[in-house]
Design a protein around this nucleic acid. Sequence first.
RNA 1: CUCGUUU
Length: 244
Amino acid sequence: QEMYNYIITYCARALPVDELSRVFDEMLQCGYSPNNITVNIMLDVYGKANLFRKAGKLFWMARKMRLTDEISYNTIISAYGKAKMFKRMRSAVRRMQFHGYSVSLEAYTCMLDAYGKEGDLETFRSVLEMLQESNCSYDHYTYNTLINIYGEQGWIEEVAEVLTELKESGLGPDLYTYNTLIKAYGIAGMVEKAVDVVKEMKENGIEPDLYSYNSLIKAYTIAGMVEKAIDVVKEMRGNGIEPD
RNA sequence: CUCGUUU
């Protein structure tokens, strides 16, 4: 039992899903029990592989064995959100509440991301209101998700508002924030602002990565400035980031 | 040791 749990905990991401699934089934057939961590890992793996029936069955079994926790709910909520299975996502949220948990910040962020990316801004807004009423304080994921969704809509004003809130919160922008801002300004056709972001992140000790440069290249491309885009490729090489 | 944000 210890060995199976150990293998799943430390080798899950290195094994193909079907093989990992085989190991897990074998474990159960031997009469061994997973633990909370390995249950959550398997839920995540099944969810990301779109194996929802397996994930659902496992969740049901694990809950009977008292092996589920808040992360288990977050994990399936995320899986349903990514798959745009909104009804199932919402029923997982309701089950989370029914079983005595409050809706987690992770769950709210998943829903915001899912509805935002779907372009269902009506529901996105209603989830955001629920989050605000919950009095949860936001973290980087929440702020960055909001910036990303507003950015994808081209709503630069609300991007700026969230950024201000993020700075006032004391958290401050992180690498994801800067990259998301570069993307947002690119979509809005504001390349010079995207360039400013790169400068600002460097000043704050956060080095641009492959995402940053690719977003900047895309920003120049959207603006029709192909020469400048090519310059970025040279610049990233100079900074030790190999173009992909 | 496991979940949510930027290709």
